[in-house]
Write a protein that binds this DNA or RNA. Structure first.
Length: 111
DNA sequence: TTAGTGACAGGCA
DNA sequence: CTGCCTGCCACTA
């Protein structure tokens, strides 16, 4: 429909994020790698900033490589945490989630 | 056009 | 475990 003026990396990033199922998470670096740039974690950040509202992305299912919510703003932090908890994700006392349990691995051969 | 930015990642002390 | 530094690159003004 729109937005095909974006870079392939950005388009892939959007598509990947949309495929994260409920109750699962992905990391910035993981998404960047699958979108074609293993060093593009910060571009994933940019995508979330500029595209989450336009593309209905499950932005809350994207966390950092430590399994931690990376938002600095307290209110936003707890908003994301609640969204994840509503999907059945359990946070540990250190504020992290178990990536071995919740990390999603897209099957790129599927689409 | 250039310079600055950033929900990161990984290495090192 | 923590904190600091560097690389990285699409986007924005």
């Amino acid at each position: 429909m729109e937005g095909l003026q974006l870079q392939p990396f950005t388009q892939k990033t959007i598509k990947i994020i949309k495929q994260i199922p409920r109750g699962n998470v992905m990391t910035y670096g993981q998404i960047a790698t699958m979108a074609g740039s293993s060093r593009g974690a910060r571009q994933v950040v940019r995508v979330l900033h500029s595209m989450s509202s336009k593309h209905q992305l499950p932005w809350h299912r994207v966390i950092n490589s430590k399994g931690e919510i990376s938002l600095r703003d307290e209110e936003s932090y707890f908003t994301q945490k609640k969204l994840l908890e509503d999907e059945g994700i359990v946070f540990e006392e250190n504020g992290r989630v178990d990536l071995n349990t919740y990390l999603f691995f897209p099957n790129d051969t599927l689409g």
